[in-house]
């Protein structure tokens, strides 16, 4: 059986080469980003349409491109990607970090909810933050927590 050709960008699951994979990922990512940016821009004031389109389109391009690449790439064709990921030590670090983040989230959200409820009853304090911002904040904190925990596990076990 011929050995699979490997590269830094990998090859497509469907059999395409690295160049086709990169072009499709970036092109598809750009199309999706422009589509979403156009929807956002159309919902806003018309005088800011172009600026909104450019800013949102540029901001979403790389994340969408990366997401598409993840969906299209055959990870067995990536240089240096271990075949048995779950047996690698990095997998254990990531599992441990994820478990730690879950515990932290339960604790922070539970304590936060309890403290805010008590404050609301005793002092009449009623916070009215946009839910989208709160969720984004929680997401960023959880991601940072994961990164820190992963690095700590790596430092302890490498």
């Amino acid at each position: 059986m011929p050995e699979t050709q490997k590269s830094a960008w990998g090859r497509m699951r469907s059999g395409g080469g690295a160049r086709k994979l990169v072009v499709l990922s970036l092109g598809g990512g750009l199309a999706a980003a422009v589509g979403l940016a156009a929807a956002v821009a159309a919902a806003g004031p018309s005088e800011r349409f172009l600026a909104t389109l450019l800013v949102f389109g540029f901001s979403f391009w790389m994340p969408f491109g990366a997401l598409l690449w993840l969906l299209l790439v055959d990870r067995d064709t990536l240089t240096g990607a271990p075949k048995n990921v779950e047996d690698s030590v990095e997998f254990r670090w990531s599992e441990r970090a994820a478990a730690g983040v879950f515990r932290d989230l339960l604790l922070a959200l539970g304590v936060g909810a309890a403290v805010l409820s008590i404050l609301q009853i005793t002092t009449g304090l009623a916070l009215q933050w946009p839910l989208s911002l709160v969720l984004a904040g929680v997401l960023i904190l959880a991601m940072a927590d994961f990164g820190i925990r992963f690095q700590l596990a790596k430092r302890a076990e490498s």
Binding site: P82, K83, N84, D87, V89, E90
Partner: peptide, 14 residues
């Protein structure tokens, strides 16, 4: 590491 299909870091840690 290649023979076992794991990362080189796994061998170092092992």
């Amino acid at each position: 590491a290649d023979e076992l299909g794991v990362s080189r870091q796994s061998i170092i840690s092992l």
